[in-house]
């Protein structure tokens, strides 16, 4: 569980995050949504330690970020898995080398053991037979799967994904969403996903946080988002006619 309390972050005097507090629960897919510029990426990067917040705390299963020693922080980082928007894979390495990289850096496993572990996660993300391919040889969807494989190879406690569906076709986006949700349940990890994709919101949003102008404007589940009368959420999520109709159909069905 990740407990965020009153998080503030400024860049050059401009306040981007204005006191966000929330809880991300273990074994659930937690989604952060909001318009471009609402502070989603800054929030996610603050959670993983790439930005240092001016105020507020982030508690990882009782361990408060501001009270950790350097060793504890290093240990915590090894418990984090991150899937970046552009995958951020090492393009000079093969798929297998990318996935084995965290194992090489943080474990004392033999080459054979590392390869076996890499093959397990590659099988889990359905990428068997791609071990020796370079990143440039893979499609966008395959690259996302390699990024997920690399993120879970160390069996993390926390998985963060920054727009994992961006640039993917709808079918591949659903496959990636389902894969993340399955992994979350299977490994019982705390997953936080930053997304613009309303399909993801409807399909896998067990907990959704809506950010507006650096503040938390709403939170709830994918069931509750259909019923909410929060104007900002309704305007954002149901901005397309298709989703308006989906909402109407859902509300008619449940009433």
């Amino acid at each position: 569980m990740i407990n965020v309390k009153n998080l503030h972050k400024k860049f050059g005097g401009v306040e981007i995050l204005k006191g966000i507090s929330t809880v991300f629960e273990t074994g659930k897919t937690n989604l952060i949504i909001g318009q471009s510029g609402s502070g989603k990426t800054v929030f996610l990067k603050s959670l993983i330690g790439l930005h240092t917040p001016e105020n507020g705390t982030i508690e990882f299963d009782g361990r408060v970020n501001t009270e950790m020693s350097i060793d504890q922080r290093r240990q915590l980082r090894q418990e984090l898995g991150m899937v970046f928007q552009g995958s951020a894979l090492f393009d000079s390495q093969t798929v297998e080398e990318n996935v084995m990289f965290p194992l090489k850096m943080f474990t004392k496993l033999s080459d054979k053991e590392m390869l076996a572990q890499a093959n397990v996660v590659l099988k889990r993300v359905d990428l068997v037979g791609s071990n020796k391919k370079y990143i440039a040889e893979l499609s966008g969807g395959m690259q996302k799967r390699v990024a997920i494989a690399r993120a879970i190879v160390m069996k993390p406690k926390y998985l963060f994904c920054d727009e994992p569906n961006s640039g993917l076709d709808p079918q591949t986006a659903i496959i990636i969403d389902n894969l993340i949700q399955e992994i979350t349940n299977e490994y019982q990890i705390t997953t936080v996903i930053n997304t613009h994709d309303m399909n993801s919101v409807m399909e896998i949003g067990e907990k959704i946080i809506f950010l507006k102008d650096g503040k938390k404007a709403w939170e709830g589940s994918n069931k509750e988002i259909f019923k909410t009368d929060n104007e900002a959420v309704v305007n954002f999520v149901y901005s397309s006619n298709l989703f308006k109709k989906v909402r109407e159909a859902y509300l008619n069905e449940t009433n």
């Binding site: 993983i48 980082r77 090894q78 991150m82 970046f84 951020a88 894979l89 090492f90």
Partner: peptide, 13 residues
């Protein structure tokens, strides 16, 4: 610019 350095940092490297 492709966030590979961020990926290293997140891993604790």
């Amino acid at each position: 610019v492709t966030e590979q350095i961020d990926a290293l940092e997140v891993m604790g490297i």
